[in-house]
Amino acid sequence: MVMLRAQGVSVRFGGVQALRDVTFELGGPGIYALIGPNGAGKTTLFGVISGGVRATSGQLWFGDRQVLGWKPWEAARSGVARTFQITRAWRSLTVMEHVELAAVASGESRGAARARAAELCGSVGLSDVQHRLARELPLGQQRRMEIARALALGPSLLLLDEALAGLTATEAGELVQLISALPSRDICVLITEHVMELVMPIAHTVLVLDHGVLIAVGPPAEVARDPTVLAAYLGDAHVTP
């Protein structure tokens, strides 16, 4: 079954065409990488999928539901979880409470949520700091907290927005390992990244956005050789046949 299908999605902010006629499908569990230079429209596309950004036209199917224009909370309850490019931790909540909140919001009882939160904190390696305020943690741990929080929603689709940005090589490596284990939990992961090398090894499909247009979709090896993709990354001079 197709998990997510976008058909001709366009977004316009005033005079700027942020997305133009974007069409793609995410089949089932797996890791999909959404790449493209800065300003290509990756975060806008995330906004459309997770609610909050209003598309000008197009269709968006989640399972068999037409969901274009849904609210963020509707998306969250239907199983779309996300992390943020700039981490968004609640100032007064501990790591544990962040995860617990998402579990409660997904419909679990307080007790069950607490148990699940403890388990998730453990699985992302945050057990030692689970009672600290999330805001006080280093960036790498905040990113893991965001993943644990997203997982606590019990999502079928997980959107990771620049989850590796600003991390040290070690931290990024650990996180990549964590992410690559997610499809085995029946989760479809869509990850944005502008550094191709980081996601190419774990992604099974790569989607390339440039100036709001989806210019290539396919397995990493294929996309890496695609002349349009190379042009987008390196400049038009290299396209000449």
Binding site: S50, G51, G52, K71, P72, W73, A75, A76, R77, A81, R82, F84, R88, A89, W90, R91, S92, L93, E97, E100, L101, A102, V104, A105, S106, R110, R149, L153
Partner: peptide, 25 residues
């Protein structure tokens, strides 16, 4: 404050956008 309402309220106060993104109306 011990029920989920307390948790939700604090999250809404701290960052309403993130709260919405986790299913809180």
């Amino acid at each position: 404050l011990r029920t989920r309402t307390g948790l939700y309220l604090r999250a809404i106060r701290d960052d309403p956008v993130a709260a919405e993104a986790f299913g809180i109306r």
